[in-house]
Design a protein around this nucleic acid. Structure first.
Lengths: 352, 352
DNA sequence: CTGAAAGCGCTTACAG
DNA sequence: CTGAAAGCGCTTACAG
């Protein structure tokens, strides 16, 4: 094997299927057939061609294959937040790596969309063959993206769900069940006065899935156990909001012995507020969170009891659903609701 | 405007430049020129063509343009960890979103590589025109990726740096300076016995940038202030490691009044260990971390004083460097060392 | 200012 | 089992 010493960029390009054909003394279509494991090819020919490929260091040109095949082999992942900076605070790494891992396994490229998406841009991505399909995050009950894609019959998959799910593929976390499980767990521990810090009001009003379903779960829990409501809707991404929300709950109902939040940030705020009021967690008050646990949950003092999901797994599955749909034509819609897992850490305790 | 009612997928494809040309009564090259703002075109022609484009909802075919242009308009982002699961724990969202934002601005696609990369695969990505360039994360002093790409003259940019930087473009965090700044700050507050929990030993031995440069910074700090060493090399991603490392430091030197760590997880472990030993933070011992602050730093109790960088900004800049290099041919190498920012929160305090 | 021709690198029928 | 031909959708010289 001769070592090429620092070839210039242009030398490095341009080994084409024609070069291989010439080197192996066959025609271009024959090389193509061998590359794609098609039909019958004489063993001897196959070997000569493989040798030529190896010697020339040939690799098929991705763009050309895609053009010919009429596919882009590219998927997009989209969260409806308008700016990359906000996105950064909202989307967690596993959503990105999970989707990337699945895409890569199926030999798709994955593109994370980070800027504002308009209906026009979205349609153009399909029309211009930039993408074959899209994975939608943060779906709301009446979602323009869903409506547009459904109407135009473009392939997509949701992480989340909208109101009308007929014939649509999705994977979503079962928020209702999570809230109910949280109450089950705390009531079991003897808690009777339980505060709940839910997603912000404007989320629920905008029909954003988690907010809507958590609210439903909460209503059911109240009814199931005959509890009186002790409830606030607050922002998700600041310790401050959790801190203030908790103070509000305590003012409203000083007998509180447990608090449920829907994010780790607000849970951290809760713990701070309780500590500041001289209530230690979990001795005087339990705190638990619905969410993604992991690092955040274990880093807190005390570490946080959670009902959690694996966002990596969810995103991974969604992406496989997308490639399945693309690969196999008219599959029936897949609809998956993922139950949460209770992970007991140090922040919850039975009432004594 | 007529509304097309749920056209089938195949109807949605296939509006080509030829369709536009026919509709506007001009030739295909003319449409192409207008699309690309080339040369002189009669105003009247231009208008007719634009109208046709609008009416047909035409968008140029991405793959065809790329094939013709000989470019993929695609960038890759690579961290040398071998499995997607490990990657998830190690890479932070802003690295992904920052790069994605810059790529998107420059109309590039960005692909996050999540699986094991071999020299063969890496070369093939360029050869097959899958990517035009790559952004390398977690570069080590003698990095096979750098060596290979340099030798083959393929475009790349580093977030980090290797030993031989001649003619290479990089942006990196100034770890040496960060360690020195940390010591400056603590010494200023009156601390004389300062423990340092550094990156794991195998990182330093493997020549991984942050470990090497932090070690250098530490040596300089010891010399500068004539301090005696109080040092451990520990794993980064578990609270446990920080917990145990801190216990070890305390055993070795009970007079410790401050601890510096290089990750938020280990800082959380430090705080737990100190608390458990009856030392409250920051009254009895200060803790500070070099790293990415943000959410983690503010979620801890007490919130964490840090020397931090914006990973979003770093990744964003690196990606712009990459597209600049690709766009403008032979630019001189850009080399940027980013100084850290001191963010004082609750975990540090002057010695009384 | 505009069109006819060639070609980017590949694959798929269509003949042999 | 293999090759000659056509074409995926576009852009770039080259003539007019």
């Amino acid at each position: 094997m001769t070592k090429r010493s620092s070839p210039s960029r242009s030398e490095n390009r341009g080994i084409t299927i024609a070069d291989v054909a010439k080197a192996a003394g066959v025609s271009v279509p024959t090389v193509s057939r061998i590359l794609n494991n098609k039909e019958y090819v004489a063993d001897e020919t196959r070997q000569r061609v493989h040798e030529a490929i190896r010697e020339l260091g040939y690799t098929p040109h991705t763009q050309a294959r895609r053009l010919r095949g009429g596919v882009s082999m590219t998927l997009a992942l989209h969260h409806p937040i308008e700016s990359p900076h906000e996105l950064t605070a909202v989307i967690e790494t596993p959503y990105l790596t999970g989707a990337a891992a699945a895409a890569s396994e199926r030999e798709y490229f994955l593109n994370s969309l980070v800027s504002k998406l308009t209906p026009e841009t979205l349609l153009n991505m399909y029309r211009s063959n930039q993408i074959d399909g899209i994975i939608l995050l943060q779906v709301c009950m009446d979602d323009w993206r869903v409506n547009l894609l459904r109407e135009n019959n473009y392939p997509f998959v949701m992480i989340g769900r909208c109101a009308d799910l007929e014939n649509l593929s999705f994977i979503d976390l079962d928020f209702e069940r999570a809230i109910l499980d949280a109450f089950d767990y705390l009531v079991e521990l003897g808690h009777q006065t339980i505060g709940f810090l839910n997603y912000p009001q404007n989320w629920r009003e905008a029909g954003i899935g988690p907010a809507v379903h958590s609210f439903d779960g909460y209503q059911q829990a109240l009814k199931k156990y005959g509890l009186t409501s002790c409830y606030r809707e607050i922002g998700l991404n600041s310790v401050e909001e959790g801190f203030e929300g908790t103070h509000d709950l305590l003012l409203e109902n000083p007998e509180l012995t447990a608090i449920i939040t829907v994010s780790h940030m607000t849970a951290a705020g809760s713990i701070k507020a309780l500590t500041q009021c001289g209530r230690s967690v979990p001795q005087d008050c339990s705190v638990m969170a619905i969410g993604f646990g992991g690092d955040f949950a274990s880093v807190l003092t005390p570490s946080l009891t959670t009902l959690e999901w694996s966002p990596y797994e969810v995103s991974y599955q969604a992406t496989l659903m997308m490639t399945d749909k693309l690969g196999q034509g008219h599959l029936p819609a897949q609809q998956i609701l993922v139950p949460p897992t209770l992970v007991v850490r140090e922040s919850t305790k039975a009432v004594t």
